[in-house]
Design a protein around this nucleic acid. Structure first.
Length: 666
DNA sequence: AGAGTGGGCCTTTTT
DNA sequence: GGCCCACTCT
């Protein structure tokens, strides 16, 4: 162990520790947690206590005199950040709220709020979510007078994807098109031109999209040596979670900020890298030892989660991959059964089997909450959903249902955005389009009519010739609300503003538009109370944009019932989770691996990693289920072959059950 | 210019 | 089963 920390902070001797690290960690975890300075790569296998290692490392640093404010902890999701900080808090009596912990985007946002002026942005910029970005790009396409009929031109959402990939992987558009969108390769020139237009539009409206939060931070760092130097000095220790999912720009940001002290600990599992399709590059983790030649590598391979049978199958499943750090998970647990491989006649029988087995498991004492069904794509679970409904088995689907992305939440947020950022054309137009008889064209006209008034801080007229007849009444109330908001004296309180919007015109709009207006209104009141914890409206709005994926069970906003549910989830969304009993369904070739995902050399390896993630979610029981015949799916229907990943498994690792000829007699 | 209606299609998703 | 797109009517 080096002693550099002690030289920096001589007041702290490692004597009065609150945590008995030796006792609470296993040998491998202990080595990583208590390692000294310098770059470190921690390869943490599934279920090996990765989060534990990271949280104890943070605690260890703090206990050894590192000021919390000098620690930077980067994660991919808000959930992971919150979880980790909460756990560190529980370990120590120290106040650790000054730790810089959060997602890459959060940290970028935090830095840019301070220095945006240096790169030609106001500090009160607003953040576009994916939908806003798509809308703005659609507007750009329309304004550029591109004939989208003559020739197929990518829509806003596709363009967003292309630009995003280009930025996040630091490849030029031409290369992204060639490698991933070859059918648009001939459109490189207009796509590049449009990107410039889009950039300018964002600047004019003083808005940033998600990618900007990373790109502009890096740009700031590259252009302003004094700024980056300040953060380099500040962050004595940088820790990164899920490093296998970083993309190029994130890796660059990490490198930029960790360059001075070089106390960089990256934690991840290359075998669980499943996001390459959105720019993640697992080579970041594979090449870490070369990029940081002095880096030490720690492997954590003791698995606490699964019974040996499940683990043996998992180890076998990933063997087919060439590009990986070799590792073998060793079980702590004993006993348990071998996984089952279940052949069903078709998807209906597959659904019946899963439902039936779930009921049996419940009778055996397994809680519904401790069971999950995993699949490659949501539509693979259609029959299952019907079957569960038929049998009254309660289930929840982990899906894109996101609280803050619902229309009514975003509508109300736009009122606040326009108030704090009068340049925000997009938010203004969204409000305008809520008025009956106003579509994209009229909304643009109204912006032209009113934006100078907004920017000048004047009062919006309640009547104007540009307002169509149908919208006259709506506009009157809407403008009144906006004027009221704009007349508020600082300090602005987000909660009050939200209530004001509801009281104004929005409530009547909601009631007319949605059958479930009552529930949505309830959401809005909860949004208001959520806003109370924020000091400023800007901060509140940033959180809204960045917290899109608030999980139902940790959102205080969403009323949670005590009822138990079986969980249905894609494998992607199951990452990091565990259940006593796991069913992986649709395991036939073409569905899993999904044939569409197989183009490209690396496609199959990523699908195999996905399979590995799926099987390593199981604690006690694992069922690999596949239909032999598929009715749905057009030309992909018909007789199916079992997944190649199943075929690769040694038979000794599973027991077989064939249901095909004996329907309903298991 | 908007709103309403029927046909084809469907990977995965965080910020 | 549901969403998006294109087409048609007002």
């Amino acid at each position: 162990m080096t002693s550099r920390e002690y030289i920096l902070h001589p007041a702290h001797a490692p004597r009065d520790l609150h945590i008995d690290y030796r006792k609470e960690l296993n040998e491998q975890q202990y080595a990583a947690v208590t390692a000294g300075d310098g770059p470190m790569l921690v390869i943490a296998g599934a279920g090996s206590g990765k989060t534990r290692t990271l949280t104890y490392r943070v605690a260890w640093l703090v206990e050894h005199g590192v000021e919390p404010g000098r620690i930077l902890l980067l994660t991919f999701t808000n959930k992971a950040a919150r979880e980790m900080l909460r756990r560190v808090e529980g370990l120590l009596p120290t106040d650790i709220s000054s730790i810089w912990g959060g997602t890459f985007h959060h940290i970028g946002n935090r830095i840019l709020r301070r220095h945006a002026k240096l790169i030609g942005y106001a500090n009160d910029f607003t953040i576009l979510d994916r939908e806003d970005q798509k809308d703005l790009l659609d507007t750009c396409i329309a304004d550029a007078k591109i004939d989208t009929r003559e020739e197929r031109f990518p829509k806003g959402d596709v363009l967003a994807e292309i630009y995003s990939l280009s930025l996040n992987t630091e490849r030029i558009i031409e290369r992204v098109l060639a490698e991933q969108y070859d059918y648009f390769a001939h459109l490189a020139e207009p796509i590049n031109k449009l990107r410039v237009v889009y950039e300018q539009r964002k600047r004019d409206a003083s808005v940033m999209d998600y990618d900007d939060l990373l790109v502009k931070t890096l740009e700031l760092f590259r252009m302003h040596g004094d700024v980056v130097q300040r953060y380099r000095e500040q962050f004595l220790h940088v820790l990164v979670d899920e490093y296998q999912d970083t993309n190029k720009i994130q890796a660059d940001l990490i490198d930029a900020v960790a360059m001075l002290h070089r106390n960089l600990m990256v934690v991840g599992d290359d075998a669980q890298s499943i996001y390459s399709w959105r720019g993640a590059d697992y080579r970041n983790i594979l090449s870490f030892p070369e990029r940081y030649p002095s880096a030490r590598t720690f492997k954590i391979e003791v698995n606490y989660r699964s019974v040996p049978g499940v683990l043996a199958l998992a180890n076998d499943a990933i063997k087919g991959n060439v590009h990986q750090f070799a590792k073998t998970l060793t079980p702590v647990r004993t006993g348990g059964a071998k996984p089952w491989l279940v052949a069903c006649a078709d998807s209906n029988q597959q659904a019946q089997f899963v439902a039936q087995r779930m009921l049996e498991l419940r009778d055996e004492g397994v809680a519904l909450n401790d069971m999950a069904v995993l699949y490659r794509a949501h539509y693979h679970a259609m029959e299952l959903q019907m079957e569960l409904t038929k049998r009254n088995i309660p289930f929840v689907i982990t899906s894109g249902l996101r609280f803050f992305e619902q229309a009514h939440i975003k509508d109300v947020a736009c009122f606040l955005k326009v108030t704090t950022n009068p340049h925000d054309e997009l938010s203004f137009q969204r409000i305008a389009r809520l008025l009956s008889g106003v579509g994209a064209a009229t909304a643009g006209k109204l912006w032209g009519e009113f934006h100078s008034v907004l920017v000048a801080g004047g009062k919006l007229p309640e009547t104007n010739r540009a307002v169509p007849k149908k919208a006259v009444n709506d506009w009157k109330q809407c403008a009144a609300t906006l004027n009221q908001l704009r007349a508020l004296k600082p300090p602005l309180k987000a909660a009050d503003m939200v209530e004001l919007v509801i009281e104004g015109w929005y409530e009547s709009y909601l009631k007319a538009k949605y059958p479930n207006a009552r529930a949505r209104l309830e959401d809005l009141h909860q949004l208001a109370s959520f806003g109370q914890q924020f000091e400023s409206v800007e901060e509140f709005l940033s959180q809204l944009a960045l917290l899109t994926n608030l999980e139902a069970d940790d959102a205080s906003l969403i009323s949670s019932s005590e009822q138990e549910f079986v969980r249905l989830s894609t494998v992607h969304q199951a990452k990091g989770q565990e259940w006593a009993a796991v069913f992986v369904i649709g395991l036939c070739d073409g569905m899993f691996p999904l044939s569409r995902a197989l183009d490209g050399l690396e496609g199959e390896e990523e699908e195999r990693r996905l399979f590995y993630v799926a099987v390593t979610r199981a604690k006690d029981e694992l069922y690999l289920v596949y239909p032999l015949f598929r009715m749905t799916g057009g030309e992909a229907g018909g007789f199916q072959r079992p997944s190649r990943f199943v075929g690769e498994l040694q038979k000794q690792h599973y027991q077989e059950l064939a249901l095909r000829y004996q329907s309903r007699t298991w």
